[in-house]
Design a binder for these strands. Structure first.
Lengths: 207, 207, 207, 207
DNA sequence: CATGAATGAGGATTCATTCAT
DNA sequence: CATGAATGAATCCTCATTCAT
């Protein structure tokens, strides 16, 4: 337990909010949304229960904020790669790296997120407006759409052959996700990223 | 609501156990494990609360039993394809079809299953021994290992080029899962299965 | 504390619902709505916390149900007096007795009720629809309107002189309420009822 | 909301204490004691949370102080009328006016006060001594006793016929209260005051 | 004095599970 | 076996109050 606490820098007496978010990251990742309790989070964040509710409307909102905070830089990166002046296939390679890196780092939280996002905004979730719900979904939809757009680029330039750019994007993404979620990456990160992109682009059949 | 009840055949006054399982299938698929309540299940199964606990140790056990029951025939099919006397690439094609078919049919339940399976058997779950937990995981590990074995066959016969057969299997599986979970299949099931297998085998780059 | 428990007949093992209502009556009357806790109610009712929520949607609903249950017979009596074939002044006399008797018996609960009813149905009260709210208000509005109608009868028959029948009804009612709430009745109930009706009808000035 | 804020003169940067009292008046009147939150009060008073506790021991004390402040001038007026050298019936008439005027102005706050005063000073209320509690009750007891004294005067002078001067005083007061609380006054304030006093003195029966 | 971030005791509510019938 | 009333542990959330700045 003390080992876990060390993962959160409590040396800074200010910024309780960040401590809570960091603690929530750990607990939500481990337990999932429902099994995670506010009590466990505050114990880890070394703070009072009320403090959580000073910063976040409720448990949902805490989770949602966490997702937003963690995915913001990633979404930025993906968006930038698309704007780069490089060939589509190279973009796909880079994006694969980026997706792999992000999902590897946040594998556990993201697994929880992708499971819970479907139920958010259902009846009985105050402080979670229709709009926030949509914004929440954008966290995984947007990067995917960007990837799809790049695949479309490749198709238009005659570089890729595929029936549905959407299916292709989902396929690539989920290959990454599956690898990550099963924790197969280990130390050969570069190799794995390369493999995924290569299989996706050229297949595994020996021609 | 009555429409839903029609999905369960209540004409047979005996076999309460099956009614409960069928109702549980619907509720767990819709709500996920935690948001599903025993109350909702028994209302749908048109039975009493105590009856559930006559047949199943607890909520986890009900869920677990449900998973076992639904995946048994699928595991059989996959196992049979492997034993077939046909080329590995053809086996991969057939397996892709089978995976796609099964996961499409049980997409919602399986999503829930794959999320919850990680926490099952944690401390505080009576009636869920270490062994049962392992058996539970076999429901998605076994078919995957069979697929991996076939990919290995292909590699050994020089038909496939891929660094890690395990990664390849996960990649193919997850491509299927992602497509299914995002409900992109629509009516062109055959086409989709073909596309996935083709991209996996030959890539999307235009060579 | 044990003395209080004796006020509730626990000899009947059935009818938990009534035990809860009886306990709620005592606690709400003593503490008011907000200071009353479900914990205290169940301790008095000698039941489990969940049992309360089997019978009542929430604390508000428990309170509301209590009010309904207690005022039903009273509303009936008042309604019957109006229909009686006796002179209006006699009806007023009888109604005064009835009001006095009812409000004396339920003085504490009614004080709480009349204070809380204004806030019921505000935002954040699930299980308390607009309609239920209105129905709730009827518990004190209806008997009052009946009294007003009788006063009107008296006016029409030239027996009473008063500017506003509504004001008159409120005046008589509240004279009763005030007396009761201040617990001035003591043992001379009959005398008190007579006094109130007489002052109301003939004034206190010595002509 | 801004409209409400305008009701409090914030132009004076000093005198935070009064701002808080004014804000408390509004919030307590609207929400009652329990539903009123310190947060809402300070938002309206445009001050910090700690400031409230610089001036008042706790929420109860803030409420109590508010009551004291508002009733002081009223109690003074009533006391003066009694000392006036005019006939008892005229005093009753004037007092009726005064009561009506005061309770009309502070109807909402007083309703809350009269409901809460019963629980004040119960166990667990620090900073609220037995003595303060008594002093608090004097705010409605004293004017009433003065009215009662005047009625006694009238009885002694053979002007009034009534069994209990206390009951009579309560009756008159509560008639006023009821009318006010139900907001029936409207614009005809003078007329209403006159009506109440007349009915009380001479009754409504047509002799 | 003024402030507001931090706190935690207290309370309402949910829901899996039991057990007497 | 079937049932469902009864249960209470577990959990989220509120809000008065404190105290360091």
């Amino acid at each position: 337990m003390d080992k876990i606490k060390d993962q959160i820098d409590l040396s800074d007496p200010k910024n309780k909010r960040q401590h809570i978010l960091d603690a929530a990251y750990i607990v939500f990742s481990r337990k999932g949304f429902h099994r995670a309790t506010v009590d466990e989070i505050i114990k880890l964040a070394d703070t009072g229960k009320g403090t959580v509710y000073n910063y976040f409307i409720n448990k949902e909102n805490l989770f949602y904020t966490l997702i937003e905070e963690r995915s913001a830089p990633f979404r930025h990166h993906i968006s930038n790669i698309k704007k780069d002046n490089i060939p589509p296939l190279e973009k796909i390679r880079l994006m694969t790296r980026e997706f792999l890196s992000f999902y590897d780092k946040h594998a556990d939280l993201w697994r929880v997120f992708m499971h819970e996002v479907r139920c958010f905004g259902e009846v009985g979730y105050p402080g979670f407006s229709e709009e926030q719900q949509k914004k929440c979904r954008r966290n995984f939809e947007e990067p995917l759409e960007t990837l799809e757009a790049v695949i479309k680029e490749g198709i238009e330039q005659g570089l890729l052959i595929v029936a549905s750019s959407k299916q292709a994007a989902y396929g690539l993404l989920s290959a990454i996700l599956a690898i990550v979620f099963q924790k197969l990456i280990g130390d050969e990160f570069d190799q794995t990223a390369e493999n995924i992109a290569r299989v996706f682009l050229f297949g595994i059949a020996n021609k």
